[in-house]
Design a protein around this nucleic acid. Structure first.
Lengths: 327, 327
DNA sequence: ACTCGCATTGCAATCGATTGCATCCATAAG
DNA sequence: CTTATGGATGCAATCGATTGCAATGCGAGT
């Protein structure tokens, strides 16, 4: 069913039908009603490709995700999908791998689809190659970045101040009398590096030597193994900050297995404030890195842009420590 | 940069350029090279809308998600996105709300975008309204359903046998001497109803009266409150099965707070086998409902179909109980 | 020398919409 | 009765590709 079929049946031209479909003026009341009825009767649905071709619009928003299984990204995706549905847009989701080539290919794909905006989910996209690809393929399209920054005029960012937040965690523990606070960090990403920097700054300010175990696998087992090794080598550790809650959960188990108590002997802090915090025992004190707020903020920015309003290029969210039983 | 711009610069017609782009025969070797160079130089990217219009194809797969935050759906999305990227397709993701109108609107949207396949994430789409919408809007397009079935020739399903699995859980507990096994279930969905049925069948077979608390909120607090009320009213409960792991986590806390021990006094089983199982204390025994396998299976079916191979209309996955410390 | 065949290339239609401009007609104003 | 006015409608171009068919030209076979 095309616009021509409807036009023929109604005995009018395609232009008239188009005017009815798009609620444009210049059609007689009765004619309009008649065509409306035919449209409904045949369940006419417009072909978006044809429409997009002539109007030079796609009503598509590209979403690049590196790891869809990250809670931050899921929340972001949720809010974005919700808002997009409200505005009649569609999300074109691309799962890029971990190489720069794949990420650039994803951006080129968005170009061929003529997306009207793009969202980059995660700090993993904060690389020079991505910057170049955007400058080259999507120089005019507003790009929104969750948890990262790229220095281009059309790239907007929402990030939480994980560096300062992590530094605050050290200060918090130091303020409660902890003398030796260690840091467990997963694979280096721009985001985990920020936390690491924060830890190091905090430790320096508290007059503690920095004690970092890097490259910890992001799982319960990873946290367990790392904490076990840490305690064996540094039995005087009395505070522990982890770049992921799940690592903290594993670490707490290792601490308990070594005969120490949490929080009396070792206080533990995670830096995600995820659901895990309420599930583990003792409940985990964690840094709220604003996953919900980030997701909502990026969706809000996107909508503002799509509807022609202006937004700040950068929105910084401030973290807060949620105290539970592990400190 | 359109195909015409390239053609003009190369001094040939658009047809020739098109032949080069699509690697079709009938172009002189040198001409081909020359055009290739121009294409690369100007970073030509085809307009997929225009291409789709004439070839009557979209290279788009529609994905309807009700709750993107469900682990089953995330795993499915992950595998699907991965496979799609490999085949040069894009995922068009629509987040539908909870009403039948929104779901039908989503399906109509997929029709206007001319998707070549569709995926329905979750049993929530197993309704008569969705069936009608598919029959009407996407009668020719293969539709893949995760965790649900719809009786139409073009709808394919991947599901895990949660009914039998949950019944097995009851038998397992009964076999270990438990006399009174209760069941905590969240909001009714086709999937949770299946688990409930399984529980009731299992209880009947074990000669136990069914004891169901329905409508439990899907959170730690929800599980805590429900288990607390349950134990107050039925102090003789010595086994508990929960339709969600997170509810089981809350329930275990309530059991501990009531002065009972897990598993000695009350054994607890979840039915997701999620990450939560290893995080809580004691570690939770849970029914593996094959989230990874389901996701992989649905992606595999999709690929088979897209590449012109045939697949079974229905793939049933069998669950298995993963024993941990809570039983 | 003529024709046949093949490789190369272009023409023009097509996909399904949108839209500026011209046309037509009826009514009202002069 | 003529002309201005304006609402309703259609024509035809356009968006950026693809593709069947026709045309061209060149070398080879007879």
């Amino acid at each position: 069913m095309t616009i021509y079929d409807i036009a023929k049946e109604a005995g009018v031209s395609a232009s008239t039908v188009s005017r009815v479909i798009n609620d444009k003026p210049g059609v007689n009341r009765e004619t309009r009603e008649r065509i409306r009825a035919l449209l409904a009767e045949h369940r006419y649905v417009p072909n978006e490709a044809a429409r997009g071709l002539v109007t030079q619009s796609s009503r598509l928003v590209g979403v690049l995700v590196a790891d869809i299984r990250n809670q931050h990204h899921i929340e972001g995706a949720y809010y974005i999908a919700q808002e997009l549905a409200r505005l009649g847009y569609c999300a074109l989701v691309l799962n890029t791998g971990n190489s720069d080539e794949e990420r650039a290919a994803g951006i080129r794909m968005l170009e061929t689809r003529k997306v009207e905006a793009a969202v980059l989910m995660g700090s993993i996209f904060q690389t020079e190659a991505v910057r170049a690809a955007i400058a080259c393929s999507l120089p005019e399209v507003p790009v929104f970045m969750l948890n990262g920054e790229i220095d281009l005029p059309n790239v907007y960012s929402v990030l939480s101040d994980d560096r300062a937040g992590t530094a605050d965690c050290v200060a918090y523990l130091a303020g409660r009398g902890r003398k030796r606070v260690a840091f467990l960090v997963d694979q280096p990403t721009p985001s985990s590096q920020l936390k690491r920097q924060g830890y190091e700054e905090g430790a320096a300010k508290a007059g503690m030597p920095a004690l970092v175990i890097a490259g910890v696998e992001g799982s319960v087992e990873g946290g367990y193994a790392a904490a076990r090794a840490l305690l064996a080598e540094h039995p005087d550790v009395d505070g522990l900050i982890c770049s992921l809650d799940i690592i903290a959960c594993g670490a707490m188990r290792a601490i308990a297995d070594s005969g120490r108590r949490v929080p009396q002997d070792v206080a533990v802090i995670g830096t995600d404030n995820s659901v895990y915090c309420d599930i583990c025992t003792p409940r985990l004190t964690s840094l709220n890195t604003m996953v919900f707020e980030s997701g909502a903020a990026i969706a809000h920015k996107l909508v503002d842009c799509l509807e022609g309003r202006s937004t700040n290029r950068k929105t910084m969210l401030f973290t807060s420590l949620v105290e539970r039983e592990s400190t």
